[in-house]
């Protein structure tokens, strides 16, 4: 069953003549329970697509269908609750002067939900945090714990879709492993659909079933996890990104004639 369907989606920033088209006409479908990845370098438009799906970027054209419902630029509360965004920076995405409990209570108040304390306790348990963390302030928490709080906040409205914007790129390797495992568990337990934005193909291949590789606002190719792991991707740019996640590729050292032959760069 298709849960997200985007057709001819284009997103721009700014108005009139100076408008900057960041995403140019992309179409994709995501099945229920699937994890779809968006990969590319900075400025390729991957986070912008996520923003348009989340309701953050309102300047888009084309059509977006979420859970069988066509979405307009303005959304109702119910439509907003269907998908929730998890941000990259766990230090900037939680209100610094609210306790964790208050942060989790806020969405429940907005949506007039009942059994509030019960829901908060459940979601804290779900993301693996002790219950007394609800009385703490974000500055008392580590980066990994904060990211768990951010995931808890996204989950508390019981959304069907989680939009993950580089959820582990600000974290240490060992913490990244914990968060990736948590995301896998939650996906299974809560029957969630994910869209994961990342620049690291290894992370994407770990979590995603299918990946769209993006370059300057468009899709270069959509590869399956199998293709990535078996190294049978089509596009050379995908290979470049795959090499990047493996580390540095030594070039043969032949003085600076070698240096010059590499592709020069503009600002």
């Amino acid at each position: 069953m298709t849960i997200i369907k985007a057709q001819h989606l284009a997103v721009s920033y700014g108005h009139g003549e100076t408008a900057l088209k960041v995403v140019k006409d992309v179409s994709f479908e995501v099945q229920k329970g699937e994890t779809f990845g968006l990969v590319g370098e900075s400025g390729c438009g991957k986070s912008t697509i996520l923003g348009a799906l989340a309701g953050r970027n309102k300047q888009w054209t084309g059509s977006i269908e979420i859970d069988g419902e066509t979405i307009g630029q303005k959304r109702t509360r119910t439509q907003l609750a269907k998908q929730q965004l998890v941000f990259q920076d766990p230090f900037g995405s939680i209100h610094p002067r609210h306790t964790i409990g208050r942060t989790l209570l806020e969405p429940l108040e907005i949506h007039g939900k009942d059994r509030r304390q019960e829901r908060i306790e459940k979601v804290l348990t779900d993301v693996g945090l002790p219950l007394n963390f609800r009385y703490r302030y974000p500055h008392q928490l580590s980066g990994g714990q904060r990211q768990r709080v951010a995931i808890a906040r996204a989950l508390i409205l019981e959304p069907k879709i989680l939009l993950l914007d580089e959820p582990t790129s600000a974290l240490d390797v060992s913490i990244q492993a914990e968060i990736l495992n948590l995301l896998k568990d939650l996906r299974e337990r809560e029957k969630l659909t994910y869209i994961l934005v990342s620049h690291d193909l290894a992370v994407v291949a770990h979590l995603c079933d299918r990946v769209a590789i993006m370059q300057s606002g468009g899709f270069v190719e959509i590869a399956t996890r199998q293709q990535l792991l078996e190294n049978t991707v089509q596009h050379p740019y995908t290979r470049v990104l795959m090499d990047g996640s493996r580390g540095y590729v030594a070039t043969t050292r032949q003085g600076h004639s070698q240096l010059r032959s590499q592709s020069p760069v503009t600002v």
Binding site: V173, Q176, A177, D200, A202, V203, A205, L228, M242, S245
Partner: peptide, 12 residues
Amino acid sequence: ALPSLDRPKDRL
């Protein structure tokens, strides 16, 4: 703890 393209594993 590192996810890898060359040695995929189900859980890190």
